[in-house]
Measured scan of single mutants.
Amino acid sequence: TEYKLVVVGAGGVGKSALTIQLIQNHFVDEYDPTIEDSYRKQVVIDGETCLLDILDTAGQEEYSAMRDQYMRTGEGFLCVFAINNTKSFEDIHQYREQIKRVKDSDDVPMVLVGNKCDLAARTVESRQAQDLARSYGIPYIETSAKTRQGVEDAFYTLVREIRQH
């Protein structure tokens, strides 16, 4: 089974770092803004072998026109913010609204991801993020692309959301 996953969120929150940590098991430290990259990885989730087709997208506003296209083809979405960047957390709402509009559905598989949880300088409390996820009816997972904490959990949870859909 193949799953088309799309990673969305503001610029600099760590979308590529999360994806590369999942696929290649290493942490990319330097920031190089993405336009669009796709990665494929075969994994076993709950005993089922599946192929993850992951689209890593641009957070930069100037590429926002490309969003409709990949939102149409994606089956599930990782909505990523950084726990030390309140603005990126506030941006999640717009991504969710755009996904709902493009998919013409209120019920699209999504996982809210709070990345950079290895950093002490948190400005978005776990509780705020949990409340937001609960209001959307989606899971919330904290990750660190640096330490790998929660990385597999985030992507695998999204696959489970798609399966249950």
Rank of each mutant, 00 (worst) to 15 (best):
Y140G: 01
D37W: 00
A10R: 07
C50M: 07
M66V: 15
T73S: 14
T57G: 04
R134A: 10
R72T: 09
L55V: 08
Q69S: 12
G12C: 12
S64V: 11
S135M: 07
T73K: 07
T73C: 13
D106L: 14
Q24F: 02
I23P: 01
I23F: 15
D131P: 03
K4T: 06
T73D: 15
L112W: 12
L5V: 11
D29F: 07
D46L: 07
Q130W: 07
V28D: 13
N85T: 07
D32Q: 04
E75N: 09
A133E: 03
K100E: 05
S64K: 07
T157Y: 12
S126V: 09
P109E: 02
K103A: 08
G12T: 13
S64N: 14
V28G: 04
T34E: 00
R101I: 05
E62K: 12
D118W: 01
Y136P: 03
Y63K: 09
R163H: 04
I45M: 07
Q42F: 05
S144H: 11
C117K: 07
R127V: 11
I141R: 05
V151C: 07
E36D: 13
D107N: 13
E161T: 09
G14A: 00
F77Q: 02
G137E: 04
L5G: 01
K4C: 05
V7S: 03
L112C: 05
S16L: 00
K4Y: 04
I35M: 05
I45D: 06
F81I: 11
R134S: 09
M110F: 11
C117F: 10
D37I: 00
Q94K: 15
G12F: 12
R40C: 07
D106N: 12
D46Q: 07
H93K: 14
Q21C: 07
Q24K: 04
I20F: 01
I138L: 11
A154I: 15
A154P: 10
R72L: 09
L119I: 11
V44F: 09
A129M: 11
G74C: 12
R101A: 10
T57V: 07
Y140F: 07
V44M: 11
I23G: 15
K103N: 08
E36W: 02
D46V: 06
Y63T: 13
D118G: 04
I92A: 06
G9T: 00
T57K: 02
T49R: 09
A17V: 08
T34A: 00
V151W: 08
E152R: 08
A129R: 04
L55M: 06
T19G: 07
S105I: 13
Y140A: 03
G11M: 11
T157W: 14
Q60P: 14
D107T: 12
E90H: 07
A129E: 04
K100F: 07
N25Y: 06
D53E: 07
V80R: 01
R160L: 06
E61D: 14
L22K: 14
D46S: 08
D32E: 09
E97S: 09
V111R: 02
M71K: 09
D53C: 02
A58Q: 06
T49K: 09
G14P: 00
C79M: 14
T157R: 11
I54C: 04
Y63L: 08
L5P: 01
I83F: 15
F89T: 04
S105L: 11
E62Q: 15
I45K: 05
E36G: 01
I162N: 03
E142N: 04
K103R: 10
D107E: 08
S16E: 01
A65Q: 13
A82C: 13
G137Q: 05
V102C: 12
E161Q: 13
A154Q: 02
G150I: 10
Y136L: 14
I20M: 03
N84P: 08
G150W: 09
G137L: 03
P109V: 10
T34P: 00
H26D: 13
T143N: 06
T49N: 11
C117D: 13
R127T: 12
V108H: 03
I83L: 15
G9Q: 01
T86G: 10
C50K: 05
I35V: 05
D107A: 10
Y39W: 03
L55W: 11
R148Q: 14
E2V: 05
Y136Q: 09
G114N: 05
S38N: 03
D107R: 12
R72S: 13
V102N: 08
D37K: 00
S64F: 11
D29E: 08
A10Q: 07
Q128T: 10
A121F: 05
A121D: 10
V28E: 12
V111D: 01
G9C: 01
D56V: 01
R163N: 10
F89S: 05
S144K: 07
L158A: 04
G9H: 01
Q42I: 05
Q60V: 15
A17K: 03
Q69P: 10
F77I: 06
A133H: 03
E90T: 10
V113T: 02
T34G: 00
I138H: 05
M71F: 14
D118T: 03
T147K: 09
D91M: 15
C50Q: 07
Q149W: 05
M71Y: 12
T34N: 00
Q130V: 09
L18G: 04
L51T: 14
T49A: 09
I138V: 07
Y156H: 11
V102T: 07
E2W: 02
D118A: 02
I54F: 07
V151S: 11
A121N: 09
E90S: 15
V13R: 00
V7G: 01
Q60I: 15
D118I: 01
I54P: 00
D53R: 01
N85K: 10
Q98L: 15
G14T: 00
G47M: 07
R122G: 13
D106I: 08
T157I: 07
L55I: 12
V44W: 09
L119V: 14
E30M: 05
D106V: 12
D32N: 03
V151D: 07
V111A: 05
S105T: 12
D46E: 14
F155N: 01
D131I: 08
D29K: 08
R101Q: 07
L132R: 07
I23D: 04
L52P: 02
V113M: 08
Q128F: 08
D106E: 13
I45G: 04
P33E: 03
V159K: 06
L158D: 00
K100A: 10
Y31C: 03
Q42G: 12
M110D: 01
V6C: 08
E48S: 13
A154N: 01
S126G: 08
G74D: 03
V6R: 03
I138S: 05
A121E: 10
S135E: 11
E2I: 04
E48A: 09
A129N: 07
C117N: 09
G12K: 08
Y39N: 00
C117G: 12
E90Q: 12
V13N: 09
Q94C: 10
E75Q: 12
A120M: 06
T73W: 14
S135A: 10
H165Q: 12
S135V: 07
L18E: 00
Q60K: 15
A121I: 06
G114E: 03
V102E: 12
K41D: 07
A154W: 01
Y63N: 15
V6L: 11
K116E: 06
H165E: 12
L55S: 07
R40E: 02
V113Y: 02
R40S: 04
G9S: 01
Q164D: 08
Y136M: 09
I45F: 05
I35R: 02
V7N: 01
T86Y: 09
A129F: 08
I20R: 01
V7E: 01
Y156C: 13
T57Y: 03
Q94W: 15
I20P: 00
Y31M: 07
D118S: 03
K103T: 13
I138N: 04
N25C: 05
G74K: 05
L18Y: 02
D153H: 08
I92E: 02
K103I: 09
L119Q: 14
D153T: 07
M66F: 14
H93D: 13
K87S: 10
Y136I: 12
K41T: 11
E2S: 03
E161Y: 09
T147M: 08
E2N: 05
G114Y: 02
D32M: 03
G114D: 01
L22T: 14
M110G: 01
A58G: 11
A121Q: 11
L78M: 12
E125F: 07
T123I: 06
N25E: 11
S64M: 08
E62C: 14
D68G: 06
I92D: 02
S105P: 06
C50D: 05
L55F: 03
M71R: 07
V111F: 02
E142Y: 02
L22Q: 14
V6M: 07
L55K: 02
S144C: 15
Q94V: 13
D153W: 06
V44R: 10
E90W: 07
L119C: 13
F77P: 01
E75R: 06
K4E: 06
V13K: 01
T19H: 00
Y3L: 10
R160Q: 14
A121Y: 05
H26I: 13
I45C: 10
